Amino acid sequence: MPWFPVDDGFAFHRKAVRAGNAAIGLWTRAGSWCAQQLTDGFVPEDMVTVLGTTPQAEKLVRAGLWVRAEGGYQFHQWTENGRNPTREDVLLRRKKDAEKKARARAAKAAKSEAQQVNEDCPQGTPEGRTGGLPEGVGSTPPLPSPPQEKKTSSSSGPRKRATRIPEGFTVTAEMVTWARENCPNVDGRRETEMFVNHWTAKSGKDATKHDWERTWRNWLLRSQKDAERRAPARAGQTTKADRIDALDAFLVPDEPHLRALPGGAA
């Protein structure tokens, strides 16, 4: 929409003062109407009486703001120095704006259609389309998909789902034997109680495990490592293996249930 500009110094311009406030009211309203109707500053006589009066129009002529023209009045220097755009300029600009908007809408519609095709049509069909063909007319067969390597899994079945520690977590005899062999410096009962209390109280995603027996074994192994670090071997201290070898030395070779005692007595 074109604008009808008014200079900020026009209020006290000698032509405005000479014409008077009433005539300037006509001049302002007529300028707005000319910009809207693209008349290039021409005001027909019948519009003069709608927007003001003929005496007011004559005052504008005498003040040098209008000139008489065939069938009405013409604004003085309507387009000079780019003061107001011509009808031709406005129509050309509107045409360019309309073409630009049309291109933008077409691009947006094409993008939207392509996205809809990708979402609605099955994968592997030509251009994502198979329907809409007359009966008996086949579409171009899709290209075969390259063979995909099958993922191998260490287990034959689906992966076990992670769970929280079971109620009444129980240590089996096998687990006790393992603990005695691998964690001799750990108090199994105490560590198991701490293990259960810890995982029962813990919350969040880290509180679930796939294998609670392995988690228990790792807990005891860490406790064994901490115990070894806190109590390093002293000079002359025997290890478990040393104690077992010493015990075997007391066994009678032919009768393992008997022990050899000092002095030859059995």
Rank of each mutant, 00 (worst) to 15 (best):
V252D: 14
F10I: 13
K100S: 08
R62Y: 05
F42G: 08
P122H: 09
P122Y: 08
D120V: 13
G157C: 12
L220E: 02
N81H: 12
V61R: 04
Q148L: 07
E70H: 10
Q56R: 05
N185M: 15
P147E: 10
G124C: 06
A233Y: 00
E80A: 12
T39G: 03
D245Y: 07
G82N: 06
P158V: 04
R29L: 13
W33L: 14
F10W: 15
A106M: 14
G236L: 04
P253C: 01
D248E: 14
L26Q: 04
L258D: 06
K160N: 12
E70P: 02
D226W: 01
A241I: 07
P166N: 07
V90R: 02
T177D: 14
A246D: 11
W3E: 11
L91Y: 01
R68C: 06
D8P: 13
S32T: 03
D8W: 12
G124K: 05
H198W: 02
P256G: 04
K100C: 01
E127M: 10
W27F: 15
T140I: 07
Q74A: 05
E99F: 05
T130R: 12
K225T: 14
E88K: 11
L65P: 04
T163W: 08
V50K: 15
L65W: 09
K100E: 12
S223D: 09
G20W: 11
L261V: 09
A63T: 06
G31I: 04
N185G: 13
G64A: 01
S156G: 08
A207H: 07
V6Y: 07
E80D: 01
A57L: 08
V90N: 02
F42H: 14
P2Q: 07
Y73L: 06
R164T: 11
G168M: 03
R29P: 04
K108W: 09
S32Q: 12
S155Q: 14
T86H: 05
T172K: 14
K209Q: 15
V48K: 06
R217A: 09
R105P: 00
P5I: 01
E88D: 10
R217N: 05
Q56N: 08
E45N: 02
I24G: 01
T177G: 14
N182T: 13
A110K: 15
P126C: 01
T54F: 15
P85V: 03
E119Q: 15
L133S: 08
G25S: 10
E58N: 02
V61M: 01
A207Q: 03
P253M: 05
C121H: 09
W178Y: 13
G263K: 08
W66C: 03
G204I: 09
P126W: 00
F75I: 05
H257F: 05
H76W: 13
W219F: 11
V117F: 10
R230C: 08
I24V: 13
M1T: 11
T215M: 07
V48P: 03
K160Y: 02
A246C: 04
A57P: 05
R214T: 09
A265W: 04
E99T: 12
A22Y: 08
Q237P: 04
